[in-house]
Design a protein around this nucleic acid. Sequence first.
DNA 1: ATGCTTCGGGATAACGTTATCCCACACTGA
DNA 2: TCAGTGTGGGATAACGTTATCCCGAAGCAT
Lengths: 340, 340
Amino acid sequence: MTDRLGGGVRRKRPTMRDVAREAGVALRTVSRVVNSDPTVGAHLVSRVQAAISALDYAPDERAQQLRRGTSGTIGAAVRNLADAHPVLSAVDMASRSHGLAVLAMSTEDDEAREREAVMSMCGRRVDGIVIEPIGTSHDYLSAELAGGLPLVAVDRPCGGVEADAVLSDNAAGIGMAYRQLSVHGHRRIAYIGDDERIFTGRERAAAFRACVAASGGPLSGMVHPGVVTSSRVASALASVLSGPSPATALITGNVATTIEALRYLGADAGRLALVGFDDFTLADILRPALTVVAQNSAEIGRTAIDLLTARAADPGRPVQTVTIPVELIARGSGELPPPV
Amino acid sequence: MTDRLGGGVRRKRPTMRDVAREAGVALRTVSRVVNSDPTVGAHLVSRVQAAISALDYAPDERAQQLRRGTSGTIGAAVRNLADAHPVLSAVDMASRSHGLAVLAMSTEDDEAREREAVMSMCGRRVDGIVIEPIGTSHDYLSAELAGGLPLVAVDRPCGGVEADAVLSDNAAGIGMAYRQLSVHGHRRIAYIGDDERIFTGRERAAAFRACVAASGGPLSGMVHPGVVTSSRVASALASVLSGPSPATALITGNVATTIEALRYLGADAGRLALVGFDDFTLADILRPALTVVAQNSAEIGRTAIDLLTARAADPGRPVQTVTIPVELIARGSGELPPPV
DNA sequence: ATGCTTCGGGATAACGTTATCCCACACTGA
DNA sequence: TCAGTGTGGGATAACGTTATCCCGAAGCAT
């Protein structure tokens, strides 16, 4: 397990002391040159720089961090590193523009893993954490938060602790999807999505129920939240499409569900109107092309970093939840008419 | 730019010294308890642990790293954090099982960015680096490599320096694709892929030419390497499909090309036999489902970490290039017959 | 009772930086 | 010539750990 690297005899790196000796100056002078302190004479500067490049010296950031008290790194605990992750990418970009590096770790949708990752980041004394929370309770973080750790939840709020959050406007998104299908003549609309123990699953399912209630459509047997597995989506879909008055349209609550639904429908995909929550790369290539509610990942990432820096500057500021608008992208599948 | 966080008054964290004072023991004893040194008496251990949890103490890993001389972190410089990145995910998994964390940074296919990212990792004294090289020359790394930095190139080799590498068997993959199309009756097979300045683009185009030569098929106008843009793929495809004897089958050299080709073909996708290099999530949902040459990302990631740890253990070992087999997954698009 | 071993645990010096002090040197003005 | 004034640059003490020593007390045999 913990075999950490370094068995071999890796040549030790030159330190500031070595540079000082090489240049024939004091340690502190090298530090001054490295930090471009203007109080160093020009020819001393060049002598030190010569020594630096002669020895291939590069400062040890860990020592700098330790001394300075700041790490220049923010942690990003995301659900998954394998799938496309536009938010992580946006976080990376925004961080870079602040001179910060991103320590990305995946939580694999596992509560223990999440905790492990976050604690490891704390141990590394990151200057802040962006988290896509998976666990329902994050009170293990309360000590850190009380200590002033800037933490921003993305996509879902943290449970049990007060923390800044950036969320998508789930209710509005479901509303857009529902309206689009209604406008195109659908009355019997079904929803399949994530487990309601998950925040987004809960919000989206609730929003869907509200839409149905508001429009007076049929509700019973039309809402299928639950863990997203191939078989569960398949059976939910089968039940929704069978019986005397089957659904003519479907809203899927996340990418995984959308894909499983498409897999199940196969060549019959064109028979059922479909709007998926969340966009993905190939949605425009499918036949019919997929109508989606797209989240603004770039904006989410940027906002997360903004909140992080704001809290770092003022740990006492009130906790804030920012909701980012979503957008309906009509590509065809959501505009299919109901069968006559 | 470099505004680093920390403007606010973040409460300072408890240190080992604080714990020692709280528990009424010596500093060193706390360290012993933290590192579970067996030479500490049981009741002292519990007293120290009580103090630790009373103060919410967590050791500063940076100080540990500084003192121990090893960082427990490996850097991963990958082209892109936004797209699906199964190799990064595999690297993350494999690292975790070694007790290592992964510092992931994206290079955005930019040579300067790559250098910046790698140098930043070196400054953080990572124990090793996994890199998906983008630049053609990596001699800025020669000093680090000479110093014993374990570095493994993934997907493409580094240029100008000797370093371990894990590559996919590009030639075999193109061979499989070509054979599959031949077996299904195609004679006029075209190839569109990445720029030949890029290693994989070069290897795959060369392998394709070799296949054509070996089978005695037509070559002229059939090979289109170049930068992958929507317009270039479109015009290449148009040229390949026009004229008196158009191609009846196509091999695409990477995911981006595959997707652009599908976008261009639109509803006509079923008319052209197609095999894509590299698999992706929705390939099985397309109509017709896409036949691909799949790389073994999990194996690539695992092997990279293996090479890394091996070099860390023995910096003097010979540089090694490992080739990972690829696999043809027939889903339909590559098994379409030529039009009669 | 005394000498020897064993073993728990405390000072203290690193690790590679930066920040605080403080001194030595040149320069100016009377 | 001497006091006053910057000013470049060197010792040295942190930052929060761990490793090396070393000491005091207890256990054992004689």
